[in-house]
Simulated assay, not measured.
Amino acid sequence: MFVVTGNTGTGKTSVTKYLNDFFEMPKVITHTTRKPREGEMDQVDYYFESADSFKQNHFLEQVDYNGNQYGSSKEGLERAFEKNPLITIVLDTKGAATYLEALPEDEVVVMYLTVSKERDLYQRLVKRGDDVQSINSRLSSEEFVRDAQLPAALAAKAHVVVNDDWEETKRKVDAIVKQAIQPKVD
């Protein structure tokens, strides 16, 4: 399982889409109570839930972020593994740490995405269509501050990818995947 984590606007969705397109890794569809952005589809981008339906799932991890609930369910993991033995999931850093604790270490590969200039994140959020008030709220949230740095729980295990240049990012991701899936020699 390839866990893609990092701060908002660092390219988690783009890297996950690349893993899906290039390596045919299905994305674990996670749950959220937030409203879909333009172009997002239920059961493709997220399971868009009401507050009540969200509570009906069996979560491995869940978090309140920017006033909305997010979580990854055991059922979502099973659906992805039915498609392929290699899967990918987008999580915040707290969720990534939970996966490292809850699952066998050799089954989880964490990629922490970052950018070299934090101000670039604002422009990326504007470009993807987030409204200015939402962006400002997100950039001042506790979660943003938390995810802006690689947490100690991930430091020794995560592959840090600086996503300033998309072609370079793809090369780094390719190398991480190839290293992870090559057979282990005793």
Rank of each mutant, 00 (worst) to 15 (best):
V3W: 15
V4S: 05
T10F: 07
T13N: 03
T16G: 06
N20S: 09
N20D: 09
D21L: 03
F23M: 01
P26S: 04
I29D: 10
T32N: 06
T33K: 09
R34E: 12
R37S: 10
G39L: 01
M41I: 00
M41Y: 04
D42I: 12
V44Y: 15
V44N: 06
D45A: 15
E49Q: 05
S50K: 04
H58K: 06
L60A: 05
E61S: 08
E61L: 14
V63R: 12
V63A: 09
N68D: 15
N68F: 15
G71D: 12
G71P: 07
S73E: 06
K74F: 15
K74Y: 13
E75S: 12
G76T: 03
A80M: 10
E82S: 03
P85F: 03
I87H: 00
D92V: 14
A97N: 06
L100T: 12
A102G: 14
L103G: 09
L103N: 13
E105F: 11
E105Y: 15
D106A: 08
E107A: 09
V108M: 02
V110N: 00
M111S: 01
L113Y: 00
V115C: 04
S116D: 05
E118P: 04
R119Y: 06
R119I: 06
L121W: 07
R124F: 12
R124D: 08
V126G: 12
R128K: 03
D130P: 06
S134G: 15
S137L: 11
E143W: 01
V145H: 02
R146K: 07
D147R: 02
P151Y: 06
P151D: 04
P151S: 03
P151W: 05
A152T: 01
L154V: 05
A158L: 10
A158E: 08
H159F: 11
N163Q: 08
E168F: 02
T169A: 01
T169Q: 06
T169L: 07
R171D: 12
R171T: 08
K172L: 14
K172G: 01
K172W: 07
K172C: 05
D174Q: 11
A175K: 11
I176F: 13
V177A: 04
K178E: 15
Q179C: 10
A180M: 08
A180Q: 04
I181G: 03
Q182V: 14
